[in-house]
Structure formats: structure tokens, C-alpha cells
């Protein structure tokens, strides 16, 4: 086993897997834990850079105020849309029970 100065343990892997709604087993979490630690360890390289006076660059091309005129356009075909849906009913997209609220 490789030693990394930085560890992402299996519990953390399971936590982030749940955040992105990814079912994983305990064994898989172990495997990812090793890889993640290596990757994040390498990325900690950025800590050497002094960015105290540097603004973040969310976008590289400076466009701004790109707006759309408020005009309603026709809908796309519901039939075509529902063809791709795994399940539908009466024109609705059908999903399994929804428990709780977000």
C-alpha cells in the first residue's frame, strides 16, 4: 500500500458517493479511497502557489449581459420527449415513490 500524506478514507468516499447519488459497495469505497488519496495528494501541489492577491477565473472569455428577449416559443413534442422516458403515464414522466422533501 502506498502511503499518502493525505487520506480520504472509505467513509468519506461513501459520503461523497451519496452526494452524487452513486451506489457503491464497501470494497469499492476502499479501492477509491486509495486512488483518491493519491490524486488529491498530487493536487495539493497547488498549495505552493501564493494566490492571496489573485482573483478566481470562473470564465476566461469576458462576455457579459447575454440576455434573451422575453418571448414565448412553442413547446417541443411531448410524444418525442416521452419516447426517451423510461416510464410515462398520461403525458407525465413516471418515477418511483418520492420519500421526503428536498
Amino acid at each position: 500500500m502506498t502511503e499518502h500524506s493525505f487520506q480520504i478514507d472509505a467513509d468519506m468516499v461513501k459520503h461523497v458517493a451519496y452526494l452524487v447519488r452513486l451506489g457503491i459497495t464497501d470494497e469499492e469505497a476502499q479501492g477509491f479511497s486509495q486512488q483518491f488519496s493519491a490524486i488529491i495528494d498530487y493536487f495539493n501541489l497547488l498549495n505552493e502557489v501564493d494566490t492571496s492577491d489573485t482573483p478566481p477565473a470562473t470564465q476566461v472569455i469576458h462576455a457579459s449581459m447575454v440576455l434573451r428577449e422575453d418571448v414565448a416559443q412553442p413547446s417541443m413534442s411531448r410524444e418525442e420527449f416521452l419516447k426517451n422516458a423510461p416510464e410515462s403515464e398520461d403525458g407525465y414522466v413516471k418515477v418511483s415513490t418520492v420519500l421526503g422533501e428536498e
Binding site: 418571448v71 414565448a72 413547446s75 417541443m76 411531448r78 420527449f81 403525458g91 407525465y92
Partner: peptide, 19 residues
């Protein structure tokens, strides 16, 4: 998007939709 925002007078489900 350009879909009509007037969902309360849409005649049926999923008729004011786009990609």
C-alpha cells in the same frame, strides 16, 4: 428558455417544455 411560463393555463402536462 423560451417556453411559456404560464403553466397554470397549459392544457396538459408537459406541453410547455424544451431541451
Amino acid at each position: 428558455c423560451g417556453c411559456s411560463a404560464d403553466y397554470s393555463s397549459a392544457p396538459e402536462a408537459n406541453t410547455n417544455i424544451c431541451p
